[in-house]
Design a binder for these strands. Structure first.
Length: 261
DNA sequence: ATGGTTGAACCTCAA
């Protein structure tokens, strides 16, 4: 008995619904963490996804952001919004407990702010968000559960995770301050599933729509599945589902998927 | 390449 858990920034769930349904049928992930729904809860395409056997928890927002959890097993204890700032109303975090026959686990879907440019206010919001995520994950890890915090972190952890590390050093998604903030989260003792499963592979999860980036291999690995010790120790594999970036009208992100025993 | 593309909603913003 194993569980497939994936994260995917869909860049509008309504624009990507055909790709999403085809992929759910083909790869049959048990749990999917979605980001950038770009819609409110009332227009989320519940019916088509439920027909494939998924339970759904959505934290939507008009136009921007929006996160969801799809699960073949029941979802309980749903939390929406990242704790730590009651003035932050952006829909960038949802968490739930999944009860599968094999195990009970806690999962979260997170959409870290892009940050725009390192000299902008949005970058300060990104750093503050990562600090709040640090505090929240610190608390979750004390529960000593099987925990998966997956999403679009908008940060590439290491040089191998970007196409041109020297050229990109200091630019958005690869600035020392945001990398430090992500490393601080990892140093709590939560593990980057892709890097644990593939210590030396260069596989990106996002490619800019512009300048033919996908075909020229200019991407970054900014989508991550972070697993607690209880989860990483039973992980079997982790990979990027690049084929979804090759379809007509793709998301600019490809899913990342792992399997736990 | 101070460009380039995409999506949502409005003709601009965020990514």
């Amino acid at each position: 008995m194993s569980l497939k858990i994936a994260t995917w920034n869909v860049n509008s769930v309504r624009s990507r619904i055909t790709h999403l349904l085809d992929w759910l049928r083909e790869d049959a992930p048990d749990i999917v963490l979605l980001q950038e729904l770009k819609c409110t809860n009332d227009v989320f395409p519940y019916m088509e996804i439920e027909e494939l056997g998924y339970n759904i928890a959505v934290h939507g927002q008009k136009t921007y952001n929006g996160v969801a959890i799809l699960s073949k097993y029941p979802l309980d204890e749903v939390i929406t919004g990242l704790p730590g700032d009651e003035n932050d109303l952006e829909a960038r975090y949802i968490e739930a407990v999944v009860s599968s026959p094999a195990a009970v686990l806690r999962v979260a879907s997170v959409y870290v702010p892009n940050g725009s440019s390192p000299d902008s206010d949005k970058f300060q919001y990104k750093l503050a968000f990562l600090e709040r995520l640090y505090s929240h994950i610190k608390g979750l890890l004390e529960l000593k559960e099987i925990l998966v915090v997956g999403g679009d972190y908008n940060v590439a952890p290491e040089a191998i995770d970007v196409y041109a590390p020297k050229e990109l050093d200091g630019s958005i998604c690869f600035h020392p301050l945001e990398r430090q903030a992500l490393h601080k989260i990892l140093h709590l003792g939560i593990y980057d599933a892709f890097r644990v499963a593939n210590p030396h592979s260069q596989n990106f999860s996002w490619w800019d729509y512009r300048a033919n980036s996908y075909d020229s291999g200019k991407g970054m690995r900014i989508d991550h599945l972070l697993l607690s010790a209880q989860a990483i120790d039973i992980m079997q594999n982790c990979s990027v589902v690049s084929k979804l970036r090759e379809l007509e009208k793709p998301s600019d992100h490809a899913p990342v998927i792992c399997e736990i025993k």
